[in-house]
């Protein structure tokens, strides 16, 4: 096979071929190194990883398939409550709970997706908002089960795989979250390069074209919506299991706005964009926010606006630019 073609074969839709090799190593090494170096901040690190997973799930739906959703937090929250309730009432085995929560959120995504995905544009956006509001309303209302405004407490997890206790310092939680993230990431990476993933990329660009080649557009969108929902559900479940609590805030519009901000800040359709965005998010949140939720809103809002105005490709755009500069400098300085 000639070299050019093999490059085209591997090159993902919106990514340059070089992004594969070194690009993979860096974030995962950093995540692992953090485990050893950042021992005092493992809780924070776990939050960051969960946010990465959450933003990644939105990237599939919004970045690749172009479904603009304002209610993605519904799936995160649903997964969180499912995992929390499962731990309290059914089994406190973490992996079982994680799978149940993932499936539950995926099913919710499937049901709502089949309902709303034949609409488009503003109507679709409103429907995602309405469904988000509905789920939050239900959770608030079933306070006997969800704890309402007080949230769900008293989650106690059994040791992971029967062997690793969730320790006070969050070692187990961090590695557990990292492993789950890696699994989902590998899956998403593979799927987005598949014929299915490429058809999503096409649906975002031109629905008429995709219909004209016989793509069942609606089903594909339902599929990726459910997949994204399931993934968000996993993120929610991880959050419930590692923090041992679920709050209504997980379902609120602010949560949907936050995950949008993280994804857009990092850069859509890159998968690793979620990493860049989440790291910035967690750091900024830690510095600026905890004191006062309203100052936190200001940060999220201002970042959202700034990205739209000045940083269309997000942080990954900057990284790309820097990498390209570095490469060209390198080439100039190494004589052949």
């Amino acid at each position: 096979m000639n070299p050019e073609r093999s490059r085209a074969t591997r090159s993902p839709p919106a990514e340059k071929p070089h992004a594969a090799g070194w690009g993979h190593l860096l974030p995962w090494t950093a995540a692992l190194a953090f485990y050893f170096l950042g021992a005092d901040f493992l809780g924070l690190g776990t939050n960051a990883l969960i946010m990465v997973l959450f933003a990644l799930s939105l990237d599939l739906v919004l970045g690749y398939a172009g479904i603009i959703t304002m209610g993605h937090a519904a799936f995160f929250g649903f997964g969180a409550y499912a995992a929390g309730l499962c731990a309290i009432h059914v089994t406190n085995d973490p992996v079982t709970g994680l799978l149940i929560a993932t499936a539950a959120a995926g099913i919710l995504g499937f049901v709502t997706g089949t309902l709303i995905l034949h609409t488009k544009g503003v109507t679709l956006m409103m429907l995602t908002l309405a469904i988000g509001a509905l789920v939050a309303e239900v959770a608030n209302h079933l306070r006997d089960y969800t704890g309402g405004d007080d949230g769900l407490h008293g989650i106690r997890m059994a040791p992971l795989l029967g062997a690793f206790r969730f320790d006070l310092w969050g070692h187990t939680a961090y590695l557990y979250t990292l492993a789950v993230l890696l699994a989902w990431f590998a899956l998403a990476w593979r799927i987005m390069r598949s014929p299915f993933g490429r058809s999503l990329d096409g649906i975002r660009q031109n629905v008429r074209r995709m219909r004209a080649i016989g793509t069942p557009v609606w089903w594909r969108m339902v599929a990726v919506y459910s997949l994204g929902a399931a993934m968000a559900g996993t993120a929610g479940a991880l959050s419930a299991q590692t923090t041992r609590a679920v709050g209504l805030t997980a379902l609120e519009l602010l949560a949907s706005g936050t995950v949008l901000m993280v994804l857009i800040l990092g850069g859509t359709r890159r998968l690793y964009g979620a990493f860049a965005g989440a790291v910035v998010y967690v750091v900024v949140q830690d510095f600026a926010a905890q004191v006062d939720p309203f100052r936190w809103m200001f940060v999220i809002g201002a970042l959202l606006m700034a990205v739209v105005l000045f940083l269309e490709n997000g942080l990954m755009g900057i990284i790309d630019f820097a990498a390209a500069r570095a490469r060209s400098l390198w080439r100039e300085q190494t004589p052949r």
Binding site: R190, P195, G197, G214
Partner: peptide
């Protein structure tokens, strides 16, 4: 071509 061959659903 992938749609024609009905492999447009393949993910893995």
């Amino acid at each position: 071509i992938a749609e024609r061959k009905r492999i447009g659903w393949r993910m893995l």
